[in-house]
Design a protein around this nucleic acid. Structure first.
Length: 258
DNA sequence: AAAAGATTCAACCGCCTGTAT
DNA sequence: TATACAGGCGGTTGAATCTTT
C-alpha cells in the first residue's frame, strides 16, 4: 500500500469538483492559508484526499491563474525553455506568470509536441541527405544546493549514487563544452558575482567555479569560520539556487541564443 | 442528424525527496 | 539509523467536447 492510498479511503470523493466543493476549499484556504494539506479536507469539510485538494487549488482555484489560449510569446518561451530544461514543467511554469505546470504540460502534449514532431519530420524529409542533430536538454537532478547542503557536508544523496555510466549519459556529462560556455557566460553577467557572494563565495577571486566532469561544478567558498572550503553541485542546482537570476531577464537573453 | 474518431484538459497515480521523530 | 509522513513532481488516464464523415 502506498502512502497516498494509506489515507482513509472510505467515502473519499473522486472525479470532477463541484462548485460547492470549490467554494469550501477556497474559503478554507482564504481563512487559513496554503499548506498543511492533510488538515485541509477535514477543516474544509471536504471528502477529498489532501492531494486532490492541493491539486485543485494549485491548478484551478488559486488567484491570478491565467486561463485561455497561450499567446505567441508564451508559446515561444515554452519551446525555448523545453529545449533548455526538458519536461521540467514546474520550472517552465515559473517563467510564465499565471500558468500552471499542468496547463503547460497539457499544452505541450496536445499542441506543441505534435507540431514540433511534424515540423521535424518535414525538415528531415527535405534534408534527408544531411544528418540531424539531437536536442540536448538540461535535465536537473532532484537535489538542491546551498552552503550547508548535504552535498557540501559530504553526505551523498540517492542522486549522487547514480551509476557512473548514467552520469556520463547525461547531457551535461557527455556534452560539456556548450554548457560550460553557456554557464560561464551567465556567471560573467553583470551582477551575478553579487548573487554568488550571497552563497558564500569570496569576492575578488578570479573565478568561483571550476567546471568539472559529469555535470558537476566545483566551487571555492567561505565556511562559517572564514576558512576556504570546497564544494560543488550540478549545473541545474545552480540554476535553482540563483533564483533572482532565474526570474530575471538574463534568462531571456540566454534563451534568445537557443 | 447521428455515429465515429480526434482532441482537450482536469484529475489521478506512483514515485521521489526532505523532514520529523 | 530507520521509519513515517507531507509536499511536490511528471506521466498517464478518461470523461467531456469538438470535428469529421
Amino acid at each position: 500500500m502506498n502512502r497516498f492510498s494509506s489515507e482513509k479511503q472510505y467515502d473519499l470523493r473522486k472525479g470532477a469538483w463541484t462548485a460547492e466543493e470549490d467554494d469550501l476549499l477556497r474559503k478554507h484556504i482564504e481563512k487559513y492559508g496554503e499548506g498543511k494539506w492533510r488538515q485541509v479536507p477535514l477543516g474544509a469539510g471536504l471528502k477529498r484526499c489532501r492531494k486532490s485538494c492541493r491539486l485543485r487549488w494549485l491548478n484551478y482555484l488559486r488567484p491570478n491563474i491565467k486561463r485561455g489560449v497561450f499567446d505567441e510569446d508564451e508559446v515561444d518561451l515554452i519551446i525555448r525553455l523545453h529545449k533548455l530544461l526538458g519536461n521540467r514543467w514546474s520550472l517552465i511554469a515559473g517563467r510564465l506568470p499565471g500558468r500552471t505546470s499542468n496547463d503547460i504540460k497539457n499544452y505541450w502534449n496536445s499542441h506543441l509536441s505534435k507540431a514540433l514532431a511534424s515540423r521535424t519530420a518535414r525538415e528531415g524529409a527535405s534534408t534527408s541527405t544531411t544528418s540531424t542533430t539531437r536536442t540536448q536538454a538540461i535535465k536537473p537532478q532532484p537535489r538542491t544546493f546551498s552552503i550547508d547542503s548535504r552535498w557540501l557536508s559530504g553526505v551523498r544523496t540517492s542522486a549522487d549514487r547514480q551509476p557512473q555510466d548514467e552520469l556520463s549519459k547525461s547531457p551535461m556529462g557527455s556534452h560539456q563544452e556548450e554548457p560550460i560556455l553557456w554557464l560561464e557566460s551567465i556567471l560573467a553577467e553583470e551582477g551575478m558575482e553579487n548573487e554568488f557572494s550571497t552563497l558564500g563565495f569570496r569576492k575578488g577571486e578570479e573565478s568561483p567555479a571550476d567546471f568539472g566532469t559529469e555535470g558537476m561544478v566545483r566551487m571555492r567558498m567561505e565556511g562559517e569560520d572564514g576558512a576556504a572550503e570546497e564544494g560543488g553541485c550540478y549545473w541545474d542546482d545552480l540554476l535553482l539556487d540563483v533564483d533572482p537570476w532565474w526570474q530575471s531577464d538574463t534568462l531571456r537573453a540566454c534563451l534568445d541564443t537557443i
